[in-house]
Design a protein around this nucleic acid. Structure first.
Lengths: 228, 228
DNA sequence: GGTGTATGCTTACGCCGTAAACTATGACAC
DNA sequence: GTGTCATAGTTTACGGCGTAAGCATACACC
């Protein structure tokens, strides 16, 4: 076989995996399918990738690292920088809805995720956050991106939404769900909603840093477990 | 076969599925395995459940509906009621880490999820939020729960975290990741962190309602797509 | 030319969800 | 009691999955 020409490489496999997922979704990404896509048998991929899991982890890392742009690492207000990251992350995940599952669920932390975490953390530290609060801030930002994006990326295929929801749109069930029946009619701009959330979070972080958050009830420690 | 005694029912199947997932994780939940758990062949389950997908959806609904307790639907400040839901949701998801994937990724909206959405929505409407803002509020609360919980439920099995992270704990890589190297040493109380986030969100919602959020940059519309 | 090694192929195993056909049970009508 | 029927469970089978093990080929270097 041609060793030099057109040789498979880990990166070619990774790129092909991203492309395949982009065009046909994550459930279409099987090793066999990925093989055919590269004109090769499934088992050949294992010369370049230790396992499918590792491949998925590599995909995650490639995506997450794209959220931080070295260009805005140093310049500008921390608020602007964080906002940029949050919006960029949101945009890429909306463009790759299949990635949401991967990015939110895979625990492995690679270089890309570290870079991303470092960018946010150091931005907060430079902005005068205590290490403790910067740590919390990283998780707050990260959680916001994941949670909010997951929600919007969840396919509203309508048909798959459930009959009840359709009934709601049709104006029925107003007795059972009065609140939703009202709000469901609102014009709903996803982008605006996310921007609102980003502002809310950044403003909240700012107020936390400055000790402006009103003291509140407590830790929620009463809500531990039960498993019915 | 005994038609009356010990008969399988959709609910028995659902309960068994929840139990199995609780004890062995979501990846152990196969129809075959669930069958043996119930002393029955896999195919028998299909008399009571249309498909595995439907079963998973039922599991989601059962979990989500448990987040809202009729008892605190009407009583108390809206802040308290929302906080209760958020903490309860977080607690149940931490007790059932496998459920995070299901709850965040499955688009189907059943009765349970509707009940949950209705509770939050009507609480906000009653608190004087505009329908538009109540709608946003629902998504903000929902996204917060999902995102933050997903993050904490992501197994920190340490071994599976990645070598770099271990190196960071050991104090290496401080040059590459100065910020993280500082914050990683902090005492890290998950419960406290979530409580902080809950307060941040509720405070933010309150400020949104009262028009106290400072005007900000914009929608992030510049961060659309690219797919490298 | 011979050897070593890298690359890809073949085969096979044990899982998975589920379609289709079959069987055994009890309920009920006469 | 006998015949009919619906219901609940079983059996078998299909096409997919990830990947372990072993084989074949072709180049690089001596």
């Amino acid at each position: 076989m041609a060793r030099t020409r057109d040789a498979l490489t880990p990166d070619r496999v990774l790129q092909a995996a991203l492309t395949l997922a982009d065009s046909e979704g994550l459930e279409a990404l099987s090793m066999r399918r990925l093989g055919t896509e590269l004109g090769v048998e499934a088992m050949s991929l294992y010369r370049h990738v230790p396992s499918k899991e590792a491949l998925l982890d590599a995909m995650v890392d490639a995506i997450v690292v794209s959220w931080v742009d070295p260009a805005d690492n140093t310049a500008g207000d921390w608020r602007t920088r964080l906002g940029a990251i949050m919006h960029r992350a949101h945009a890429t995940l909306l463009a790759r809805p299949w990635a949401v599952e991967l990015v939110t669920m895979r625990p492995r932390v690679g270089e890309g995720r570290l870079r991303y975490a470092e960018t946010i953390t150091s931005a907060l530290l430079e902005a005068g956050f205590t290490p403790q609060l910067a740590h919390h801030g990283l998780h707050i930002v990260d959680g916001t991106i994941m949670g909010f994006t997951a929600q919007q990326a969840r396919r509203p295929t309508a048909a798959a939404l459930g009959d009840r929801v359709q009934a709601l749109y049709d104006g029925h069930l107003a007795d059972d769900y009065p609140g939703i029946s009202i709000t469901i009619r609102e014009h709903h701009d996803h982008a605006e909603e996310y921007a609102l959330m980003v502002d809310l979070v950044i403003d909240g972080l700012s107020r936390l840093r400055d000790g402006l958050m009103p003291p509140r009830s407590g830790s929620g420690a009463r809500y531990v477990l039960s498993l019915a």
